[in-house]
Amino acid sequence: MKKIFSRPESLKNVTTHYCAGCGHGLAHRLIAEVIDELNIREKVIAVAPVGCAVVAYDYWNFDCTEAAHGRALAVGTAIKRVRPDNIVFTYQGDGDLAAIGTNETIHAANRGENITAIFINNAIYGMTGGQMAPTTLLGQKTATTPKGRDVRFQGYPLNISLLLGTLPAVKYVERVSLHNPQEILKSKRAIKQAFQNQIDNIGFSLVEILSPCPTYWEMSSEKAMSWIRDTMTKEFPLRRIK
């Protein structure tokens, strides 16, 4: 009998601090699997965000740095420029990448930095207790939109991936989801493509991952996955954007 599924080398054998059913653990593992498969663990430098994944460096088994909230792509830009032979990726949530760090995101993308951005979209601020994110859906209740997001006051969910897709220097943008095993495997393929692009010096690549936050969506883990499938993908359709 053969072991056909086990923990990748790039993922430390520790228990994470994430809530039950949280998508971060999944996304961490997929990245670790891709890094193992591409045999780049010893070349990778990761930039962790501020948000729930702030201590991602405790879980990944390769070089990591933190970045101030929203600045991951500025930090990543510099690391890649001074160490072009290393593989640099950022891991950022919706608040980090599409609210406080929008400027850094757009400009790193627009410069065509040869780095990989992994963007976790769970439509909420988990770390601080479930406030509205730039990607919170219309009508979605959060700590700061107690009656639901209202377009008159909070505007529309920000489709940052679509926006980035319009930039000529951006080479690859795909939106994927973690809501079932098939989609998880597709997510992994997209992540692998984004890393392969960097290895091949193709340019800026971003993978947006729709990811569950059962705790602040106030749902069971299973229900959260269905909510992504039935509701979130309506606003954020799964597709290769560029």
Partner: peptide, 17 residues
């Protein structure tokens, strides 16, 4: 850089490297 914030955080990155 696109801003002072980006510039100093780029310095953070380059120095970390």
């Amino acid at each position: 850089a696109e801003s002072e914030l980006a510039a100093i955080n780029m310095v953070f990155g380059a120095s970390a490297a």
